[in-house]
């Protein structure tokens, strides 16, 4: 231990400029990321702002019990899991999109497809939600105009709980499909072209080459991104959920994160909400560790 400290001392003396480069960033992460982790102890306490994080009284798992027994617990968990599974089911779409784009010859067409499909990524979530709300409006929205034109009845998409999850997930696909495909396109461009030449000479069709060369070629990238997305399985983009939420679709739209915000900041139940948030983070962490170790065993590709 002493030796270890001494090495540090010597190294810092020798390279202090470089450590100085790191210091502000490290301080930033300690203040804004590690202090909140320390603050998580309020999940096990009865936090009063006047007594501070440290001074409040310990009460154990009471807040967790209250959450597990609350009437909305199962609705929230069910919504969170359903939306996450829905998103996970669409995980292959950017991969397919990348494979399709990769089959195009370089030129105007390929470039246009890419520029257009990447663009929505840069639109703010407020504007995306605003566009959704306008397009699906029951009387003035263009989507309902189309439904009426085809002889259907207008649907009140935003107030009908059954529609919420589809609107949330597919608008996400609209926004991110192109952008999420970039990383796969990059992986595809790294595949050795000789493999394709050899396969063509052997008479392989394009579909066969995609299936037997391209897909295995990008598998490591696919697995890493799959691990990452499962590791954040329970953290839904709650900024957008919160924007699209209203009293009438709440049964279908309330997820853990929006619940934390509502009960924590709007109703000032700090300790209780911190407990709910911690529950969510722990599940995510467990999922990440599990899926990572499965991936390591099955495919030799893993985060660590």
């Amino acid at each position: 231990m002493n030796m270890y400290l001494q090495t540090w001392k010597k190294q810092i003396k020798r390279n202090w400029h470089l450590y100085l480069f790191i210091l502000p960033t490290l301080s930033y992460f300690i203040i804004f990321n590690y202090l909140p982790m320390y603050g998580l102890q309020i999940a096990f306490k009865n936090f009063y702002p006047s007594q501070g994080i440290f001074g409040s009284e310990w009460i154990g798992f009471e807040h967790f019990e209250r959450f597990f027994n609350s009437p909305s617990f199962w609705t929230i968990i069910q919504n969170t899991i359903t939306i996450s599974l829905y998103e996970l089911a669409l995980f292959p779409l950017p991969i397919l999109f990348a494979l399709a784009i990769n089959e195009l010859r370089n030129g105007m067409f390929k470039k246009s497809v890419q520029i257009i499909t990447y663009a929505p990524h840069f639109i703010s979530v407020v504007v995306v939600a605003g566009i959704i709300v306008s397009l699906v409006h029951p009387t003035t929205g263009i989507i309902n105009k189309g439904i009426v034109l085809l002889g259907g009845e207008p649907i009140s998409f935003m107030t009908e709980p059954a529609w919420f999850k589809s609107i949330y997930v597919w608008s996400g696909t609209w926004q991110q499909l192109g952008w999420n495909s970039i990383i796969y396109i990059a992986a595809l461009s790294a595949i050795n072209p000789e493999l394709h030449e050899a396969a063509t000479i052997d008479g392989a069709t394009r579909v066969q080459r995609i299936w037997n060369i391209n897909l295995p070629g990008i598998m490591p990238t696919v697995i890493i991104l799959l691990i990452l997305s499962i590791g954040s399985f329970m953290s839904i983009g709650f900024e957008k959920v919160y924007l699209l939420q209203n009293q009438l679709n709440m049964d279908s739209s309330e997820v853990i994160q929006t619940y934390v915000y509502r009960s924590g900041l709007l109703q000032a139940q700090y300790s209780f909400s911190a407990a709910v948030g911690l529950f969510n983070s722990v599940i995510n962490l467990l999922l990440l560790v599990t899926i990572n170790s499965i991936a390591r065993k099955v495919s030799q590709t893993s985060l660590w």
Partner: peptide
């Protein structure tokens, strides 16, 4: 130290209190 914060965070409420 940096990477840990990608996978675990104090969450909304403790961040707010800080």
């Amino acid at each position: 130290i940096f990477l840990v914060t990608m996978f675990f965070s104090g969450g909304l409420i403790p961040s707010y209190l800080i």
